[in-house]
């Protein structure tokens, strides 16, 4: 089919216009604020790249960027590893497959803030259901201060995130798995002993398209997490769960350093775009090898 440039323009323009006007334009004029000392109210003074220079010596921003990377990597890994395992399990259980897939998707229907409120209640070290349950099951030694221990807090939030979106990864891998030639699956199921080896050699590479989708979406979704740490820890204790989005927010509204906040947001944005591009093109290349 021949596509004239004018035809392309006709197709793309409506979306591009709405998107450009209401997202791109305000984002860019927002980012111009990163060159000012704007407080979010009144006019800011132009201060060049001072905000960016300041970031270099701001230990909270360094911690936040590092935590964001750790958080994103952990969520992406666990959500997809567990999702893959669950998908293969469900794939071999035709009786339960459809209903349980829905069960695991249920938490992702809720708003993240709501999920945060529910878990902040569950995590409470003062009679919170998680610790009480562990106690009741005779696992009292596993009781933790889930959100107050700097060594655990970030992982607790990762856990909540994975809980919330595990169903997404499961559904994606399950679809990929069910799309495999059925002889392959049957033989894999029968061969108990060699099953794992077989899985890694034969089926796992064939799940490449599913992996690309699942990993890319998780990466993008988890890198901008804001609501969970906002409700659960506000970045604490200390800066143990300070994520990039959260430090942006705190600088913008609590600290009244709007210009500085947008500078941090921009740096994060660039980082996420680069990383997700690298990862997804690597995964795409892997798909070509099938």
């Amino acid at each position: 089919m021949t596509w004239k440039p004018s035809t392309i323009a006709f197709f793309v323009l409506p979306a591009l216009a709405v998107y450009g006007l209401f997202v791109i334009y305000p984002t860019f004029s927002g980012l111009l604020l990163s060159l000012t000392d704007s407080k979010g109210v009144g006019q800011g003074q132009f201060i060049g790249l001072a905000n960016y220079a300041r970031m270099l010596e701001d230990s909270q921003v360094r911690t936040a960027l590092l935590n964001t990377v750790i958080y994103t990597v952990l969520v992406t890994f666990f959500q997809n590893a567990l999702g893959l395992g669950l998908a293969v399990w469900l794939g071999n259980m035709p009786e339960l497959r459809n209903s349980l897939r829905v069960v695991f998707l249920l938490p992702s229907m809720l708003s993240m803030l709501v999920v945060g409120f529910i878990w902040s209640y569950l995590f409470s070290p003062l009679g919170g259901p998680i610790n009480e349950m562990l106690q009741a099951l005779g696992l009292g030694s596993l009781k933790r201060v889930w959100l107050g221990d700097p060594g655990i807090a970030l992982f607790s939030i990762v856990g909540v995130h994975v809980w919330m979106y595990l169903g997404h990864s499961t559904a994606i891998f399950l679809a990929g798995y069910l799309g495999l030639p059925s002889e392959l699956r049957d033989s894999a199921a029968i061969d108990g002993a060699t099953g794992w080896v077989r899985f890694w050699r034969v089926e796992w590479p064939l799940l490449a398209p599913a992996t690309t989708v699942a990993v890319t979406l998780t990466l993008l979704g988890s890198s901008k997490t804001f609501e969970l740490p906002f409700v659960l820890t506000r970045g604490g204790p200390g800066d143990a769960t300070m994520l990039s989005s959260l430090t942006v927010f705190q600088n913008a509204f609590a600290g009244e350093r709007f210009g500085y906040a947008t500078a941090i947001a921009l740096v994060t944005l660039v980082g996420v775009v680069i990383i997700s591009n690298v990862v997804s093109s690597a995964l795409r290349r892997r798909e070509q090898l099938i």
Binding site: S120, F123, S124, P125, L126, G127, V145, W146, L147, G148, D149, P150, A153, G236, P237
Partner: peptide, 20 residues
């Protein structure tokens, strides 16, 4: 006080203990 425990609770949770 148990430092770690205290870092894991907020004002309203502590108030809850007092209420109880």
């Amino acid at each position: 006080i148990d430092t770690t425990l205290n870092l894991g609770i907020d004002g309203s949770q502590a108030m809850n203990e007092f209420k109880a």
